[in-house]
Write a protein that binds this DNA or RNA. Structure first.
Length: 808
RNA sequence: GCGGAAGUGGCGGAAUUGGCAGACGCGCUAGAUUCAGGAUCUAGUGGGCUAAGCCCAUUGGGGGUUCGAGUCCCCCCUUCCGCACCA
């Protein structure tokens, strides 16, 4: 008899399909607590297909979904395609195919691969963000954001990817290069659409608190939002009507300000620069503009700068202090200008040293504190006039209040996050549903006219002009104004795919619904997502945007929850030959080959067994052999033996089973899927050993127990065996087994005996034994007595059910 | 520089609370089977010895707490990840 996984697996997949086994049970009367929504981050269709790294997350979310199904929940476990936008379009261009055609092919291939996983996806709910039925509501979202004053168009210096030839959001620029293609990102002035994510910065930060998410992701989002509390302070400029407003988190160091710095791009630079400094300032600005953002951000750089020849007046003491420009001050943060306190800020310290600017200490560190040349902590005020002796933290409040009363300062919270650039100068996306009318300005397309269809074109390549390819299609561009009816032009930008994916989780609950993005009743039954599974690379992209969208939808009254994903799990990546799998590195492991060689269940089990699911793991080509052998042996064992219903099963067998029901259940609950698999192996090894000693000793009930436990991991084989032991319905209609605590209590337990902390003996004792009995047994044990011979026993430590330690 | 995670056999890794270190698997060694290879099965797989037993070492390094530390505390080293002139 052979383990014919290639017959078993397709057979059960066919049966699942025919019986609608994976169709979501959506009972309108069902209580929310009976429904469970487990979502995978959906992929973009690439044509290269999935590799074993992609499988990992899908397998573990499927194991979890199947387990929850066996626990009695109605499961929503959908899949779809992030088919609009840069990733999908770039993939198509690379292949020289029209995006629509390429995406169709890629989806077919990836869907075949996803079927191989044997996941319980409900394909009736499949969504595709590039279908008009879907993007109609992406555009609807855009209109709603517009209505609420959260969308605006503005000419601004934006991030422009030189290779993708489009504007990018800040979140898409990583280390100065495009997150997608790795090409250089430059600044370009262009009118662009933005969403006011900054209005939600505070809430996005505050609500991180209650999320059952990996610490790492919450931290990354908190850093990205970057809240800092400080004050804005106004400095007058000597001999000049303009005022200089700066942001500082350290108003307590105002007396130590010995110079000011403006970002080179600051609008005041032009006005205040003295004639004799003009040449040097202009040259400096020129150089700054030539320096890439990437180079400018390198923190190890030596400080540079130029004097403007102008002076500011320190509002606390009337001192005149010189105004400099330097690229270490960023125009994009705060007011683009700072007061510099070299005594208490390392950056200012460096700058002051280089340019010979005075350094005045105003905060004395506490006594016991090791003094450095530049102390940035709290302390006692010195050199601060009448405030000397005050604690710096009290003075902080005091001086803001004092200056505030003269209109020169106010407390202010600053965020690092900026508004979200959402328009793309690319073809493959949902057109921005706006019309430009000479008379009426920017006018939204009426909801009833949605979707604004993306026209089919032959030339879809990006233009690089700052306009999308849509601008070259008169039939698309020319329209009439929805307000006045005069001739008007459509907006030709497309919507970033991050918007498509910001609300997709909502669509799955009612994918056919056509009176809005989702049926509110279905939303109430299924949302928010109970468990979300995906890679950590979306920490400050998709996950942040989705949260923002959800809060806006909540404010609109469209959804009744403030956070979309209650629980998040980030699976680790799979490496091979020391690096992340990528076609360019030639280290891809193709699941298709493994499926045909070892079968779907083996690959599923190995994806879990490879290591802790949240950690990165190195792929071992031979590792899958081990799980394959296990499944093969399980198959042969169950097929070649019979498990009678009415036998007097030894306690050893049942005790073993129940111990592992507990262990495996606990491990699944903790997402320790690697030890779920090793636990299943251990249990099988144990059962087989007992069976070898006493053939026929395993009851029908216990055999079923094993099949149930392995079902989430190896669903095809479990169905086959479930059928073999006499069931004609799916194993996933059965309930997850529960362990019997009393049975565990009846087992003998092993108590370890140590002498001075070193293992000397093991006792097998009935679990009900008393402390006295066990201690006595330990002291009288034949391995222990000789060791104790003639020595004084100082102490005997007993840990119930575990160990006796005899201290000499 | 700041923040986070991690460091355990030849390899992947296990060890909820401080209580048998190395489960499970890969690989390797020997044997069985086989014409042979592969596959499969059985046994072994930290070191030492006067070798069925006993002893010793051992969780990146050093110190500490404890009857007892991979696990807790302090110092140091290494790797990975995130942030990085954000005032």
């Amino acid at each position: 008899m052979k383990y014919m996984f290639n017959e078993i697996e397709p057979k059960w997949q066919k049966i699942w399909e025919e019986t609608g086994a994976h169709k979501t049970v959506d009972d309108p009367a069902a209580d929310r607590s009976k429904n469970y929504y487990c979502l995978d981050m959906f992929p973009y269709p690439s044509g290269e297909g999935l590799h074993v790294g992609h499988w990992r997350g899908y397998v573990l979310s499927d194991v979890w979904s199947r387990y929850m199904k066996m626990k009695g929940y109605n499961i929503l476990h959908p899949m779809g395609w992030d088919a609009f936008g840069l990733p999908a379009e770039n993939a198509a261009i690379k292949k020289g195919l029209h995006p629509k055609e390429n995406i169709g092919r890629s989806i077919a291939n990836m869907k075949r691969q996803l079927h191989d996983i044997g996941a319980m996806y409900d394909w009736d709910r499949e969504i595709n963000t590039s279908s008009p039925e879907y993007y109609k509501y992406t555009q609807w979202m855009f209109l709603k954001f517009m209505e609420r004053g959260l969308a605006y168009r503005k000419e601004a210096p934006i991030n422009w990817c030189t290779s993708c030839k489009t504007g990018l959001a800040n979140e898409e620029v990583v280390d100065g290069v495009c997150e997608r293609c790795g090409s250089e990102v430059v600044k370009k002035m262009l009118p662009q659409w933005f969403f006011k994510i900054t209005d939600y910065a505070e809430r996005l930060l505050d609500d991180l608190e209650g999320l059952d998410w990996p610490e790492r992701v919450r931290l990354m989002q908190a850093n990205w939002i970057g809240k800092s509390k400080g004050a804005e302070v106004i400095f007058k400029i000597k001999g000049h009507p303009d005022e200089l407003k700066i942001f500082t988190t350290r108003p307590d160091t105002l007396f130590g300000a010995t110079y000011m710095v403006l970002a080179p791009e600051h609008p005041l630079v032009e006005k205040i620069t003295a004639p004799e400094c003009r040449e040097a300032v202009m040259e400096y600005i020129d150089n700054t503009l030539k320096t890439s953002d990437l180079a400018r951000m390198a923190s190890e750089r030596e400080k540079t700068g130029a004097k403007t020849g102008a002076y500011a007046i320190n509002p606390v003491n009337g001192e005149e202090i010189p105004i400099w420009i330097s690229d270490y001050v960023l125009i994009t943060y705060g007011t683009g200008a700072i007061m510099a306190v070299p005594a208490h800020d390392t950056r200012d310290f460096e700058f002051a040293q280089k340019f010979g600017i005075p350094i005045i200490e105003v905060i004395k560190p506490p006594e016991n504190c090791e003094t450095e040349e530049c102390y940035a902590g709290e302390g006692t005020m010195i050199n601060s006039g009448k405030y000397n002796g005050m604690s710096s933290s009290d003075f902080w409040k005091e001086i803001v209040k004092d200056l505030g009363s003269r209109g020169l300062a106010e407390e202010k919270v600053n965020f690092r996050i900026h508004d979200w650039l959402v328009s793309r100068q690319r073809y493959w996306g949902a057109p921005v549903p706006m019309v430009h009318c000479e008379k009426c300005g920017i006018v939204p397309v009426p909801e009833s006219d949605l979707p604004v269809m993306l026209p089919h074109v032959d030339r879809y390549q990006p233009t690089g002009t700052g306009e999308s390819p849509l601008a070259a299609i008169p039939e698309f561009v020319n329209t009439t104004c929805p307000v006045c009816g005069e001739k008007a032009r459509r907006d030709t930008d497309t919507i970033s795919q991050w918007i498509c994916s910001s609300w997709y989780y909502l669509r799955y609950v009612s994918p056919e619904y056509d009176e809005g993005p989702a049926d509110k009743e279905a939303v109430r039954r299924w949302l928010p997502v109970d468990q979300y599974v995906g890679g950590v690379e979306h920490a400050v992209l998709h996950l942040l945007y989705s949260r923002f969208f959800t809060k806006v939808l909540y404010d609109m009254g469209y959804v009744n929850f403030k956070e979309p994903f209650t629980r998040l799990f980030n699976q680790g990546m799979i490496y091979r030959m020391g690096s992340k799998m990528a076609k360019s590195k030639g280290n891809i492991v193709n699941p298709d080959e493994l499926v045909s060689k070892y079968g779907r269940d083996s690959l599923r089990a190995y994806e879990l067994f490879i290591g802790p699911p949240e950690q990165d793991s190195e792929w071992d080509d031979r590792g899958i052999e081990g799980v394959y052998r296990w499944l093969r042996r399980v198959y042969l064992f169950f097929m070649q033996n019979n498990f009678p219903k009415n036998i007097d099963e030894p306690l050893l067998v049942r005790g073993l089973l129940h111990r592992y029901i507990k262990k495996i259940t606990d491990d699944i609950e903790r997402f320790h899927f690697n030890t779920v698999v090793s636990g299943l192996m251990e249990l099988f090894n144990g059962l087989q050993e007992l069976y070898d000693k006493e053939p026929g000793c395993i009851s029908h009930k216990s055999a079923e127990g094993y099949i149930l436990l392995m079902a989430p991991v190896a669903p095809h084989l479990a169905e086959e065996l479930w059928n073999k032991v006499g069931h004609d319905t799916s194993v996933f209609k059965a309930r997850w087994p529960e362990y019997d605590p009393e049975l565990l209590a009846q087992e003998n337990i092993t108590v370890v005996v140590q002498v001075n902390g070193k293992l000397k003996a093991r006792l097998s004792v009935p679990s009900g034994s008393s402390e006295e009995e066990i201690k006595a047994m330990a002291l009288n044990d034949e391995n222990i007595r000789p060791v104790l011979d003639g020595k004084d026993i100082r102490r005997v430590i007993y840990i119930p059910g575990k160990l006796v330690n005899i201290v000499l």
